[in-house]
């Protein structure tokens, strides 16, 4: 038994016949072959699978692909545009905010959404924003620093561009 789902993923319209039970994380990874989105826990505790739906970060292991029919999905693959890294990606590199890299896509999507909403977050606000995401490698300190780097970078860029 399959149903057709159509949605916008990273700006492109996609349409596929899938089982209703297919989780969004599998639709993205298996059907669309966008493997940047990971899964780590089954129970929506780890945040490795975070993508954005209509701009909001959500855990794609706990949403059906069918529920996204007609919506806009953005994955980590959307961050780099025409060879230009998103400042949040640059920040993670600059501040050594990743080690094994497995949580990184979810962290990037979560913190990008944070900055879109709150361009100048405090350290505590950053920690709250990523509190649904587990990183086993970094102890979070450098992730906080990376988000601050991106915030400052964006502010500096905005100032220069007046």
């Amino acid at each position: 038994m399959t149903i057709n789902v159509s949605m916008t993923v990273n700006g492109a319209q996609v349409s596929h016949d899938i089982e209703p039970r297919m989780l969004l994380v599998h639709f993205v990874r298996e059907t669309l072959e966008l493997t940047g989105t990971h899964w780590g826990c089954d129970t929506s505790n780890c945040g490795a699978c975070v993508v954005r739906i209509d701009g909001q970060p959500v855990k794609s292991c706990t949403i059906l692909a069918a529920m996204c029919d007609g919506h806009e999905v953005a994955t980590v693959e959307s961050l780099e545009v025409e060879g230009q890294l998103d400042p949040i990606q640059m920040g993670f590199h600059e501040r050594h905010a990743l080690q094994c890299g497995f949580c990184t896509p979810g962290m990037l999507m979560t913190t990008r959404a944070l900055l879109d909403e709150n361009p100048d977050p405090t350290d505590h606000e950053i920690r709250v924003a990523i509190s649904g995401a587990i990183c086993r490698c970094t102890g979070y300190k450098n992730i906080v620093s990376a988000v601050r780097w991106a915030a400052e970078h964006e502010a500096a860029t905005a100032n220069r561009e007046g």
Binding site: P57, V58, A129, S131, G132
Partner: peptide, 9 residues
């Protein structure tokens, strides 16, 4: 309640 990302849903 849960975490900010879960609270979005």
């Amino acid at each position: 309640i849960a975490d900010p990302v879960v609270r979005n849903r």
